[in-house]
Amino acid sequence: MAKKLYVGNLPYSVDDEALHSHFAQYGTVESAKVIMDRESGRSKGFGFVEMAQDSDADAAIEKSNGAELNGRALNVSEARPQAPREGGPRRGGFGGGGDRGPRRGGFGGGDRGPRGPR
């Protein structure tokens, strides 16, 4: 079964292919992905590598953790499962509809409570 590795402190110049090449020296790499910032398109400085064999992944951790790649010491460890995000589904915007009590509402509308005589 494949083992996923976390690779931190990556130089910003490293792309998916360079990450794949670095870890291929330890065994079969199933995937290598540098995480990119959505807005800038630049590397966030970390990525994930999936090794085909657990023994190859263990060797990669042992030999690459602390080793330099383009002048930076890598942090390599077994990846932990992603923690569930708190707060449930995201809702954007201001205010909202519905009865939230008297004199509430804001930008999104909603119940403003009773209005005086006109």
Rank of each mutant, 00 (worst) to 15 (best):
K44E: 01
A59L: 14
K63Q: 15
K3Q: 13
M51H: 08
P11Q: 05
L74N: 03
K63R: 15
A18G: 12
V34C: 04
I35W: 02
A18D: 10
L19Q: 02
V34W: 01
E50W: 01
E17R: 14
N70W: 05
E50C: 04
K4P: 00
M51F: 11
G41A: 09
G66W: 11
S64F: 08
G108L: 07
E62N: 14
M1I: 06
D37V: 04
E68S: 14
D56Y: 08
I35S: 01
G27T: 05
V76S: 02
R38M: 13
L74G: 05
R104S: 08
N9M: 03
G105S: 08
A83S: 14
A83Q: 15
F107H: 13
G87L: 08
G41M: 07
G96E: 03
G97H: 10
V7N: 00
G88P: 04
H22R: 14
G66F: 12
D37I: 05
D111A: 06
V49W: 06
E39M: 10
R103S: 09
S13A: 14
F46K: 03
S13D: 11
G47C: 11
L19G: 01
F46N: 01
R118E: 11
D37W: 06
P117W: 10
L19C: 04
S21R: 14
S31W: 04
L19V: 04
G96C: 04
G110D: 05
G8T: 04
G105D: 08
L19A: 01
V14M: 12
S40N: 11
L19Y: 02
A18W: 00
D54N: 13
G110T: 07
Y12F: 13
R85G: 00
G97E: 06
P81Y: 09
F107Y: 11
M36V: 15
Q82E: 13
G98Y: 08
M1S: 14
Q82I: 10
F94S: 09
V34S: 02
A18E: 14
R72K: 15
P102V: 02
Y12N: 05
R90M: 08
S55L: 13
A52F: 06
E39Q: 13
G71D: 09
L74V: 02
E62Q: 15
M51L: 12
S43V: 06
E78Y: 11
G110Q: 05
P102K: 10
H22V: 04
L74T: 01
Y6E: 01
E86V: 10
